[in-house]
Design a protein around this nucleic acid. Sequence first.
DNA 1: CAGGCTAATGTCAGCCACTGACAGTTGACA
DNA 2: TGTCAACTGTCAGTGGCTGACATTAGCCTG
Lengths: 220, 220
Amino acid sequence: MGLRAGLRAGPPEGLRERKKQLTREALVRASLELFIAQGYERTTVDEIAEAVEVSQRTFFRYFAGKEEVALASQSRIEAHVKTLMRARPPEERPFEAMRNAVLAGWDSLGEAIGESVPVSLHMRSYLLIESTPALIAAHLRRSMELEEEMAALIAEREGLDASDPRPRLAVAAFSGVMKVAGRLWSQGDDLSVRALRDLMVASLDSFGPAMAADWRSPAP
Amino acid sequence: MGLRAGLRAGPPEGLRERKKQLTREALVRASLELFIAQGYERTTVDEIAEAVEVSQRTFFRYFAGKEEVALASQSRIEAHVKTLMRARPPEERPFEAMRNAVLAGWDSLGEAIGESVPVSLHMRSYLLIESTPALIAAHLRRSMELEEEMAALIAEREGLDASDPRPRLAVAAFSGVMKVAGRLWSQGDDLSVRALRDLMVASLDSFGPAMAADWRSPAP
DNA sequence: CAGGCTAATGTCAGCCACTGACAGTTGACA
DNA sequence: TGTCAACTGTCAGTGGCTGACATTAGCCTG
């Protein structure tokens, strides 16, 4: 131990492991670039494999399907947010904790997705997802799983029984708001991370009013 | 005109149109029965086509894909709810109108899905969807489209600009609650329509408290 | 009611995502 | 260094889905 110098998180286990990591990252990068350049459907797995110089079979040993590689960098963020959520101080109320975890997640985007996928590529891949029906579907399913984990986390934080529906309701509302923000962002023209973050904050802030107020009376 | 007697809604245009309708219904029925009996993935399109005695190619002329036929009876309900939503009196607030439209939709399930698909078959198909990852994904995507239409409807009702995010936020929250209710239902053991309806009402009723209350203090 | 028009269907060939089986290659480690 | 296990490539096959073209069958007009 302690032999290696200048590395941060996970020390590469050996040559084999390092090569695998490299192949994986190359596949993600090549996939995203091809998807963005020519569209998701119009890109075949053979093309991706060829670009990375591996066989098609190898591609499928790294990813369960074409969808998975398209959502790969998105998954990194979700994992990151989950970690941050677990680290939230227990005094924070559920909504507050989720809000802080998500915002902190986007503020540290770079660390979340690693060096192999530049931030701008990641953002364009997000855009790709939002504009490709097959990927929208896959993404929503993954989000549902995330929601369930978040609800379980919150139930634990608050000391509630697993059957209590309130955490699930709160999480459903929260991620509904996030989805609206994501959609607004993808339809706007400022594709920066900052713009997305601002939209998230704005959507969260107008959620309360949106639920309570009488929209027909002139705004307060 | 006026020659035909004793028919209700859409007068069958002729023999050709009637046969198409019949084929379509037979495909939906056979699909659902096969899916339920042996699972969605383990059922091939060839099997379905064979059961109805049409070619595989014909199947794909009626449905864009295997997913679509699995969601067919679900789609009927969504269309029905949309209609009911449009008929809601304008005095109702958005949440109220959505709630009433959805509940009324389930109360008139029979009329919505027609005779070709019995209610119990429909409910089991709903269960199938909730337990099949590929169908969950497809269903969530369709729900998203429904949400957008609902938001547009509400924006119009309330006389709001299309860019106002509040209708979208309200709809997102509402359908988040509905999804939770659907999930609770599919995981319970009472698979009746009544049970689903009750869960929807219960979820809607506990939504307010779930958002506002301090869950840690003993319930009021 | 014959015959042409057109919509609906069947047949065939082919693409692409994905998988199992088997063989070859290459790090790991005694 | 040689053995083992992990990783990769090749091949053959299944199933969803599509375009092109031929065939059938309701429809409509004279």
